[in-house]
Amino acid sequence: MPHDHHDHLSPSGHPYRADNDGPLTYWQRMEIAVRELLIEKGVVTPAEINAQIDAMDARSPANGAAVVARAWTDADFKARLLADASAASREMGFDIGPLNLIAVENTATVHNLIVCTLCSCYPRNLLGLPPDWYKTREYRSRAVREPRAVLREFGVDLPNDVQVRVHDSTADMRYIVLPARPEGTDVLDEAALAELVTRDSMIGTGLPRNPQ
């Protein structure tokens, strides 16, 4: 069992995780040293670091799901989203910082898939930090060459008459997929629709859940 750290919570106000009790690694030592030097030099304050961690923790796929559900229920909003996804996300109250976001729409004939072959660019300021698989050699290498095979590994088997459009986030834009609204959801309200929108459906490696 990890020993008890509740008497000193982390600077973000949360209990230390069990993995903070493992042997101190070289890289953790570097992180503490860099952070403390920057604080001592007046470059950053502990409060700024805590606030940034809290801001990142507050970002999650639920934010993107809310944007998608709004687009499914409000045609004018959807038009604004496809014209300028950053402005549309800010309109909903999300703090996305300087994110330049483009929304790409899945239809009956087009399926979009997001990747960053050069590193791990991701719409983190809306969806939070990317899943580990997004950063792997396997995903980054294969998504631009055999996206259909990649999608099958995620359980998505696309018919041949659906065109796949892969988006390689090579520079200053980030991408979010606007998935197609599932059939049989006419009676659902915006909040219920948002529950159907998965993280992977906004990366393009998944589809929205079907209603119960």
Binding site: S12, Y16, D19, I53, T117, W133, T136, F154
Partner: peptide, 30 residues
């Protein structure tokens, strides 16, 4: 890496540890 040959995509993930979040925060702030 785009287009290189590679194997099956590993699907396992992990939650970020506090020290990792701090590294991320330092990058953004700097």
């Amino acid at each position: 890496m785009g287009g290189q040959t590679a194997g099956q995509i590993p699907m396992e993930g992990h939650d970020f540890a506090l020290w990792e979040k701090r590294v991320d925060a330092l990058m953004v702030l700097c």
